[in-house]
Amino acid sequence: MGLQNLTNDQKMNWERLTKPGRAIQETKFTDPIALRELGLRAPVQRLMGKVGLQGFLNYEARTYERYTLEFLSTLTKGRRRRTLHNLPFE
């Protein structure tokens, strides 16, 4: 078993993602698109139904897509953070 036939990039990503101490943010929301694409929708529905948690599959993360995209578009990798010490004088 295990991971086989990985490219070098995939191996590097695996190593990065499985580092000990890496924080994982849990959530109560499911991703219906991911479940469907992975072929896990029906098995997850069966499992959640058996343990009485079927309602969790109906929770939707309420987001504001337009505002989120606008915010994310303002981010630049490596941009220097503005602090009180480096703000320009106006």
Rank of each mutant, 00 (worst) to 15 (best):
T27A: 03
G2D: 13
L69H: 12
T7A: 07
R82K: 08
N13I: 06
A61H: 15
T7R: 06
V51P: 00
T18E: 07
K11I: 09
T74D: 01
R41Q: 14
F71M: 10
P20V: 04
V44Q: 04
L35A: 09
F71I: 14
P32M: 10
L53V: 13
D31S: 04
V51A: 02
M12H: 08
R16C: 10
D31C: 05
M1G: 04
F29T: 10
Q45C: 09
K77L: 05
T83M: 03
L38K: 06
Q4G: 10
G55Y: 14
K11Y: 15
T7S: 04
L72R: 01
G2T: 14
M1I: 14
E15Q: 07
G2W: 05
Q54T: 15
F89G: 13
G55Q: 14
R81A: 05
G55D: 15
M48W: 10
L38P: 00
G55A: 15
E65W: 12
L17M: 11
F71T: 13
L69E: 13
F56N: 07
N5D: 00
K11W: 13
Y64F: 12
A23P: 01
G52R: 03
L40T: 06
G55V: 12
R36Q: 09
Q10R: 00
F71G: 11
L57G: 00
N8I: 12
M48Q: 11
L72G: 12
D31Y: 09
R22V: 01
F29P: 03
E90T: 11
R16Q: 11
P43L: 03
K50Q: 02
T83W: 08
L40M: 04
F89V: 14
T74L: 01
R81P: 03
L35W: 08
F56Y: 11
R62G: 11
T63I: 15
E90V: 11
L69Y: 13
Y67P: 05
A61Y: 14
F29V: 03
Q25M: 03
D31A: 07
E15L: 05
L6W: 05
S73V: 05
M12S: 06
A61I: 15
R41T: 14
L6V: 15
L3N: 07
Q10L: 03
N58P: 12
P32S: 15
E60F: 14
R66P: 03
G55K: 11
Q45W: 01
L38T: 09
T68I: 10
N13D: 03
R81N: 01
A42K: 08
L40C: 08
E37N: 06
R79V: 00
T83E: 02
T68L: 05
E70Y: 01
L40K: 02
K19S: 11
K28L: 04
L38A: 01
N8H: 09
T76M: 04
E60D: 11
L84T: 10
N58D: 15
E70W: 04
L6S: 09
R82T: 14
